[in-house]
Amino acid sequence: MVVANSGRVFAKEVGRTRFYFTMLEPMFRRNGDQPVRSVYFKLDPEQGQETADNADRLAHLEGENSTHPAAVRLPFFVK
């Protein structure tokens, strides 16, 4: 099963109740062709593992200084 809407492709794996999504293009652009960072939050897959690095959880938020409404609050999350 595959469906697409709102910039996402959503799919179900055959024979399993596992679901996947992907994006083919950035949701937003600014300053011409610069993508605005799209971020989602999921359960930390490394929690409980000896090799887990706590900094990994927020690495994707670092360096964000966009004033675009879709990303302007991201620096607040890491404070």
Binding site: M23, P26, R37
Partner: peptide, 12 residues
């Protein structure tokens, strides 16, 4: 217990 995932760095 969450982590942030950057979708734009992982398109397609």
């Amino acid at each position: 217990n969450s982590m942030a995932v950057n979708v734009d760095s992982n398109l397609s």
